[in-house]
Design a protein around this nucleic acid. Structure first.
Length: 576
RNA sequence: CGGGGCGUAGCGCAGCCUGGUAGCGCACUCGGUUCGGGACCGAGGAGUCGGAGGUUCGAAUCCUCUCGCCCCGACCA
């Protein structure tokens, strides 16, 4: 085994923070010489970056194998016919990177591989005896993201582990799903990540059973809520809201019109009228994909959940109505819409319907109305849960706890697909009776390259990265201070002894001042640093410093004779 | 795709408003002094000023177009 010397490695660290990087992981990956940008959302992996990527891949691979899955490798470049078969060629839109070959044939780069794997299975699987089956791959995926960002956080080319399960029935699929869920739990734990398994919106492709593995980080793009009492956690998009008290109280008096000049926003009006935001009935106008105009009413302090709203009105997609549409529909400027005397479909959230005496827009510019009651019948509306869950809400599962809000990075997503693809692609098997049945599928993704960034978001300080041992590019860095023959010999010897004990070691043999070596070691984030200086060498010892120790100056002085054994033991212990 | 910003040496930036022929720090090369938390002195090398067109005696600077990148929003591993 050759010892990896710093002088023979490509580890181009930089002192200054590149301007384009705004989050910690992106900055540190660039500064530490892990990655370099090639284009928007396209990166080189330098040696250190690739080492971390491989570490993560291997953990994923071993746990997938342990869970009974088999690894395959599918092409990244795909003929259009497969996506055409399921209709995704048209549905996917511009995110699909399309290319033409020399003959003008349509191809694309794979953003995910449901069709291809389904094709593989339908060719080879004929009988229930061949099922269940779980196949996975670790491969580059391509998505022409509208907006790549955050370094490895959101790329156009990224490494993903995608697995697909095939079962004879729904019960089997659920079992496969549960197995994957458990495997994922192990994977994320072994990676040293703090995460939450979260109920998610499964998107357009059906499937009620779905979970996201959210890595908690302030820089995360997803908002999630988790109960402070039980294990319930959900993406706010999907979070259920505990049942609201039934619409009770009725307004005492009559509806009264109030003049609220130039006060469009709820907060402004509330301040102006000296009223509580919770007494407001917020009214928003939406347009569905079928061009239907819908008014959504919620309690003033709540936010609409557009996914729930779309489901509530039976639309595939909805978007806020334009200013012009609002004016046309309400006869007032934006900010004065309300359900009373509104001519059209209205959906009200239970918490909005429960307001005894609400303040809401008068559908007249610069005017609101007070004393509105749903119970009394001041307006007609469908009562449906359409608001997003938020911090402080009561937990729908245990009914005792309250929600806390977190930010998360979606590291993995698992869900049951059912027969969505298998029926379209005619992937069937014969059961015991000889009946032809569609295979029931599940799919399970992990954003492998994204996990590199996620891990750094969770493990860094002002000096650099603090890798968890299992995914560190090297486990130990040996820093020799000085380059006389005796020092070089001692450094090489320690590095070699560590190698012999299976420790991954980087020997910083550069002719650099101590400060430079220390700074680089901290930046790169290698968990353990063994330093041999002139003074320690004189006493045949070295210093062992831990990157994650609370006291940055703390270290153990250990004899060189014992160093390799002690360090190897410490590495082993940290490998979980 | 909507909104905002930036492209000047490998990296970080100044110069642009008020046109006059390109500069600072880091990095790099050579020499010397240093050597336990990103050393110092001296001497160097390095730039089609993102690209194209225009205005002008003269354009990094003004105008038009274009390409790229970053950030904020609608989508996703």
């Amino acid at each position: 085994m050759t010892i990896q010397r710093f002088t023979r490695a490509l580890i181009p660290t930089v002192k200054e923070t590149p301007a384009e990087a705004t989050n910690a992981s992106h900055q540190l990956l660039l500064r530490g010489g892990y990655i370099r940008q090639i284009g928007a959302g396209i990166y080189d992996f330098l040696p250190l970056g690739l080492r971390v990527l491989r570490k993560i891949e291997n953990i994923v691979r071993t746990e997938m194998d342990r869970a009974g899955a088999s690894e395959v490798l599918m092409p990244a470049m795909l003929p259009a016919e497969y996506f055409q078969e399921t209709g995704r060629w048209d549905v996917y839109g511009p995110v699909l990177l399309r290319i033409k070959d020399r003959k003008g044939g349509d191809y694309h780069l794979g953003p995910t591989h449901e069709e291809i794997i389904t094709d593989m299975v339908r060719r080879e699987v004929k009988s229930y005896r061949q099922l269940p089956l779980n196949l996975y791959q670790i491969q580059m995926k391509f998505r022409d993201e509208p907006r790549p960002r955050g370094g490895l956080m959101r790329c156009r080319e990224f490494v993903m582990k995608d697995a697909y399960s095939f079962d004879i029935d729904e019960a089997g699929a659920v079992k496969s799903y549960e197995t994957m869920r458990e495997a994922y739990r192990k994977i994320f734990t072994r990676l040293g990540l703090t995460f939450r398994i979260v109920q998610a919106d499964s998107g357009a492709i059906g499937g009620k059973t779905s979970a996201e593995f959210q890595i908690l980080a302030d820089s995360g793009e997803d908002a999630i809520v988790a109960c402070d009492n039980c294990d319930y956690a959900a993406n706010v998009e999907a979070a259920e809201v505990a049942a609201e008290p039934a619409a009770s109280g009725t307004a005492a008096g009559e509806i009264e019109k109030v003049h609220t000049p130039g006060k469009g926003g709820i907060v402004d009006v509330a301040a102006f009228l000296k009223a509580d935001v919770k007494d407001f009935l917020k009214s928003l106008l939406y347009v569905t994909d079928q061009n239907e105009l819908v008014m959504a009413c919620l309690r003033g302090d709540h936010e609409v959940n557009e996914i729930k709203l779309a489901n509530a009105v039976g639309a595939r997609e909805i978007h806020l109505a334009s200013e012009g549409d609002v004016v046309k529909a309400t006869g007032a400027k934006v900010g004065y819409a309300g359900p009373v005397k509104f001519n059209g479909r209205i959906v009200v959230d239970p918490s909005g319907a429960a307001i005894a005496s609400a303040i809401t827009g008068a559908n007249e510019t610069d005017h609101h109305i007070k004393g509105v009651s749903f119970a009394r019948g001041d307006y007609k509306a469908e009562v449906k849960g359409i608001r997003s869950a938020g911090a402080g809400d009561r937990c729908p599962q245990c009914d005792k706890g309250r929600f806390k809000a977190y930010k998360g990075i979606e590291g993995g997503h698992i869900f049951i697909l059912g027969t969505h693809y298998s029926s379209k692609m005619n992937a069937t098997y014969l059961d015991e009776k000889g009946d032809k049945k569609p295979i029931v599928m599940g799919c399970y993704g992990i954003g492998v390259s994204r996990l590199i960034a996620s891990a750094i978001e969770q493990h860094h300080d002002k000096d650099g990265i603090r890798w968890p041992m299992p995914i560190a590019p090297y486990q130990v860095v040996v820093a020799t201070l000085g380059n006389d023959a005796a020092m070089m010999e001692a450094g090489e010897k320690l590095a070699r002894e560590l190698e012999e004990r299976g420790v991954e070691v980087l020997w910083d043999d550069r002719d650099e001042r101590p400060g430079v070596k220390f700074k680089d070691a901290d930046l790169i984030g290698i968990p353990l640093r063994a330093t041999i200086g002139a003074k320690t060498l004189a006493t045949a010892s070295c210093e062992l410093k831990r990157r994650d120790s609370a006291d940055p100056k703390a270290f153990d002085l250990i004899p060189l004779a014992e160093a390799a054994d002690r360090i190897a033991a410490e590495v082993k212990k940290a490998m979980v």
